[in-house]
Design a protein around this nucleic acid. Structure first.
Lengths: 334, 334
DNA sequence: ATGAAAGCGCTAACAC
DNA sequence: GTGTTAGCGCTTTCAT
């Protein structure tokens, strides 16, 4: 079933059928009605492939994420999909699993499908020190590239989160509750967002003249076990912190578990504040207070930046959304 | 950059370039080497759109899930993507969010992209009583349709989970631990998998001559709050169960939380067994014993069924993988 | 308002 | 082994 079949049945030219599909030009109402009825009677679906072949570009946005099983990426991907749909674009999702070769391969796959734009969330765009080869690869594609992160030497656009502000909010909140011995843990310094948070953490200590206890800053994986390990290390300290900022919900849940196992009450004995506000914060006891993002705005911003570029307009090179504090039950006055 | 440009530069015909891209026929090695070098020097990516236009079909498998933020769907989607990639297919993911109109729209979108097959996990293929209109819609597409569920009147293939076996395993395990007052909760009877589990639960009571306490079977949402509510209802019973089978990890976490809030120990006072074995089972205290699925096999089976159909072969109409028991810390001898 | 026809980038059948 | 050529289904000038 093609527009030729429809045209023959409606006794019009294929061009006329095309016009009613795309609405690109006026067609006599009675003809249009006839054509539409023939199309629906035959379950006709215009061939997006043929349509794309003409423009040299498909209405697909390639979405490359680190791992959709991580609730943060899942939440953000969903918002990207919704935003894309609103603009009549579809999302082609790929997981990179922190495997460079999958990441490269995904880029090529998007290129082969002539994606209008590529959005990447996680993996090499998160590195503090970017991989030049990856930047070159991206540049060679000549496809608009948007990310929550950045990559030096890459012609790209960033729509991300204000990481320093995350720490500002968490720190000020804890400080307002009377905390002075505040730890920050989880994550890797080679990840830019984490690096920026750590930097801000140090800056704030300087600002308020609080001495820095280097043991209060701990590196780890971003997951449950990372949180467990960090918390155990902190609890073993001679002078343990009264409050803890975790780099992710997942790590925070691990930290909470470790604290409970050590017989401590949260927030009675130690306050805990998290990042990402995924559903995990709702299923723990106590529920986790944490830094929240407007996922809809973030996903919408990524997509609209991408679509602006597809339309040959110039969006801002960088934009950062402001995080907010979502107060639940895991922090208390000291 | 097209194969024509490559051909001109290599002084061969476009067909020869096509041959080296697809490997569909022998090409003199020196020519092939030259062509490949020209392609890579120019970052040439063969146009998948043009390729698809010929076959009338793309190498895309449409994957329709209820909600990727649910860890069960995320785990399964990932396996589908990996399996598809291995067969040189790409996955186009769509979330339906239990919204019928999005579900229908997604189907049409897949059809427009000439997806080779559609895999659906969740939503209307899970209903005990199928929606005939949806079946008609699927049938009209004339695209191979594979699902973990089923839909009456629909020309489709099922690759799912043996739900009765889930209950067999859980029930036998608890029975072996000495439990006789076993509750089953969560989920909705209008969902086929849940219905099958409930049915099996009742059958097993008959088999062992255990009287059924109708209050021990509770309907609810599949999420955290559903679990909380069910557990609270069970705990309010004059004779409360000694063990509980939750319909999902999410609900189990809620149940655990409710039990703790009521001052009960799990598994000391009450045993808890879950379904799905997502990462949630690892982040609770105690870690949750539960029914596990071989996600890789399930995702692989869905995809290979789809690809078999794409290749005009006939896979089994129905296949069900056997669940297993993953023993952790939430069940104890009575 | 509508039709005719060229062409998007590629593959496959056919010829040599 | 390799070139020629006819489409795949659609959009889009260019006429009318």
């Amino acid at each position: 079933m093609t527009i030729y079949d429809i045209a023959r049945e409606a006794k019009v030219s294929p061009a006329t059928v095309s016009r009613v599909i795309s609405g690109s030009a006026k067609v006599k109402p009675e003809k249009e009605k006839l054509i539409r009825s023939i199309m629906s009677r035959n379950n006709f679906h215009p061939n997006a492939i043929a349509q794309s072949l003409i423009g040299g570009q498909s209405k697909i946005i390639g979405l490359l994420v680190a791992d959709i099983r991580n609730p943060f990426y899942a939440a953000l991907s969903v918002e990207c999909e919704i935003a894309a749909k609103r603009a009549d674009y579809r999302v082609m999702l790929r997981n990179a699993f922190n495997d460079d070769s999958i990441e490269d391969d995904s880029l090529d796959m998007f290129a082969e499908h002539r994606a209008g734009a590529i959005i990447q969330i996680g993996c090499r765009v998160d590195d503090l020190v970017g991989d030049p080869a990856y930047a070159t690869h991206i540049n060679s594609l000549d496809i608009p590239f948007v990310s929550t992160g950045t990559l030096d030497g890459c012609n790209m656009y960033t729509y991300g989160i204000d990481n320093a502000a995350c720490i500002d909010i968490a720190f000020e909140y804890l400080r307002g509750l009377g905390h002075r011995r505040i730890a920050l843990f989880g994550g890797r310094l080679r990840v830019r967002s984490t690096y920026e948070k750590w930097t801000r953490y140090i800056y704030l200590h300087g600002k308020y003249g609080i001495p820095i206890n280097t043991s209060y800053v701990q590196e780890s994986d971003y997951d449950f076990n990372g949180g467990v390990e960090c918390m155990n290390r902190l609890l073993a300290l001679p002078e343990r912190p009264t409050a803890v900022i975790a780099i992710s919900d997942h790590a925070a849940v691990g930290a909470l578990s470790a604290a409970h196992k050590a017989g401590l009450s949260v927030p009675g004995d130690i306050s805990l504040i998290s990042h990402d506000n995924t559903f995990l914060t709702e299923i723990t006891t106590p529920r986790l207070t944490g830094i929240d993002y407007d996922y809809e705005k973030l996903g919408g911003g990524l997509v609209s930046t991408a679509i602006t570029l597809i339309n040959k307009k110039e969006p801002p090179r960088e934009a950062f959304i402001a995080p907010t504090l979502n107060i639940k039950d895991s922090c208390a006055k000291i």
